[in-house]
């Protein structure tokens, strides 16, 4: 007979277990080693306990990231779950760090843990927020850059959720294209 942990009887279980990662560059470590797992959770209550406990993204030092991925997927292109995929990218200007970054990031997290993409949720690997001097970025990573239907549904859902705040443009890039090029020359597969 299968036993259920007492916590799970009173907490609200999530469809997936998610892991929160923190990235901070340190000169004596490899880039991969600078990605640190903070915690994993699989209930609504544990998500909020973690989220309420950590610094908001807007208070991170420039150069740092938060990532939240399904358990077992590392927040990097090279991971086997990500390597054929891509990301919806939301670019924020400098002023938006104080006004919108935290809201956007929270909305993206809620979409993911709530499985708001419905049958397309299986295509979602995770999301990353990059805090950068030239402008912050939020990326929603999907598993396969060829699955146009899922990519568009996921992008449209993100866009409609973020409309609560302001007009935003979302661009989808394949990781393979981003890896080969630098800066603004990356070709976008979709813009919505």
């Amino acid at each position: 007979q299968k036993t259920v942990a007492p916590d799970m009887l009173i907490k609200h279980p999530l469809q997936n277990t998610w892991t929160l990662w923190f990235f901070k560059i340190e000169s004596n470590r490899s880039w991969e080693d600078c990605q640190v797992e903070i915690a994993s959770f699989n209930t609504v209550e544990d998500f909020w306990a973690l989220y309420n406990h950590i610094e908001p993204a807007s208070r991170l030092k420039v150069g740092c990231d938060y990532s939240m991925f399904k358990q077992g997927i590392k927040p990097m292109w090279e991971d086997e779950h990500n390597c054929r995929g891509g990301r919806w990218l939301i670019n924020l200007n400098k002023q938006q760090r104080s006004t919108e970054l935290d809201n956007f990031w929270m909305e993206v997290l809620l979409l993911m843990i709530g499985e708001s993409f419905e049958e397309h949720s299986d295509e979602v690997c995770g999301a990353v927020v990059n805090v950068r001097g030239k402008g912050d970025k939020i990326g929603v990573w999907t598993a396969d850059a060829k699955k146009n239907d899922s990519i568009l549904k996921i992008g449209e859902k993100c866009k409609s959720q973020l409309k609560v705040y302001n007009h935003v443009a979302l661009h989808y890039q394949a990781h393979s294209a981003a890896q080969q090029k630098t800066g603004s020359a990356i070709r976008c597969l979709f813009t919505i």
């Binding site: 609200h12 279980p13 999530l14 469809q15 609504v44 209550e45 909020w48 989220y51 309420n52 909305e107 809620l110 979409l111 843990i113 709530g114 499985e115 708001s116 419905e118 049958e119 949720s121 959720q161």
Partner: peptide, 18 residues
């Protein structure tokens, strides 16, 4: 099986529940 879906409003309500 059935996917466990939560609405945004519900998730936000849960934020400060004890």
């Amino acid at each position: 099986g059935t996917r466990i879906i939560y609405e945004r409003t519900f998730l936000l309500q849960m934020r400060n529940s004890p």
